[in-house]
Design a protein around this nucleic acid. Structure first.
Lengths: 196, 196
DNA sequence: GCCTCCATGTAATTGGTTACATGATTCT
DNA sequence: AGAATCATGTAACCAATTACATGGAGGC
């Protein structure tokens, strides 16, 4: 059996501690969701596939019929192999927000500016969310030794990437707005003489 | 009929000038490919769908049996509506490279560092590619008035976003490496006394 | 003649989302 | 009693990639 990114992401989450499908789903809703998404309808079947391949195993049941899984030795080996031996798949960035920028020449400059301002607001909102998480994490007890503590450490490193990315995008949108103001093109600004 | 991002991307490309499926495919291989990807096997059927919906129409044939399409008035209207009325779909960033960072605690610090250096090299390579395009574009004749010139202008604005993003990621990887060096954790550094 | 690039298409498969379905527990 | 949340699963559909298939034109 062959496993893609989702399978390995599940192995990675289970490497920290045994978890149920529901808990895994929530991970994709929050932290991990910023780099990879998955719905429960994809997770449950994938867990079954992983179990069939011997990479995870049932690890008891909890309240309300929850079933938690644990990673097996083979699963951990597979995960480490994936991390260290296979190169990250060429990322297919699908950024619809940035795609639209390519087509902004089709709308009035005012509409284009409005779009850029909207996008900037999104970037800043996401930046604020990230920063709140960072502050919250900094307030945690500094101790902790288990896998969870190590996992947290790396998730904060990834968080820093998110912060820097959103900052860069917010800065870019401000720059783009100034560019647009400098040469609105179709409707020439009244005063400054156009020079090309 | 309903069209998603791909359909609108095709409309956007055809709004600049009539093009064949092959030419459109190449656009996704180069500039547009950095924000959205599509293979010819997806593009040809989508063009047929767009034609059936009256948003594009055949615009003559070229050499080797190439068939070019032009956007219709309805297509342009639909595109502008999409741009100005519908909000960008919540981006599902799928960044496998960053996902792996969440799981780097599973490998030896040396391997984690090697991964970060590899990623940094990728970011810098992409940054160099973007900058080369920018330089190349700056050397172009500054004139030009048609839709193509306007489209170029906005593609350079999008390019600037790419440049800033890669710069941010390269900076992040350098920072992450220094973080890792500061506290390699599992194998404690010999000299500095560990304090937690 | 053969290889490469141009050019268009279809088929099969995978990955992912939306919708459907069900039941237990907790909160109000 | 009713609503919200926890919890697991399946079915149908859509989007996207990979593989299959064909042919014309130009260069070596």
């Amino acid at each position: 059996m062959k496993f893609g990114t989702l399978g390995h992401a599940l192995l990675g989450l289970l490497a920290a501690r045994p978890q149920s499908g529901y808990e895994l789903t929530r991970s994709f809703d929050v932290s991990l969701g910023n780099v990879w998404t998955a719905k429960h309808s994809q997770i449950y079947p994938e867990l079954a596939k992983l179990e069939a391949a011997g990479l995870v195993q049932p690890a008891g049941t909890g309240a309300r019929g929850s079933k938690s899984y644990a990673i097996t030795r083979a699963g951990r080996a597979q995960l480490v192999r994936w991390l260290s031996e296979t190169p990250p798949a060429a990322q297919d960035l699908r950024d619809e927000g940035m795609l639209r920028v390519f087509f902004l020449w089709l709308v009035a400059p005012d509409d284009a500016a409005a779009y850029l301002r909207d996008q900037r607001a999104r970037y800043l909102a996401q930046l604020a969310r990230y920063r709140a998480i960072k502050v919250q994490a900094a307030a945690l007890p500094p101790g902790g030794e288990g896998p969870d503590a190590e996992a947290l450490r790396w998730s904060l490193i990834a968080l820093e990437a998110g912060i820097r990315l959103e900052k860069a995008l917010a800065g870019w949108s401000t720059w783009a707005l100034s560019e647009l103001a400098a040469a609105p093109d179709p409707p020439a600004p009244k005063r400054p003489p156009r020079r090309r």
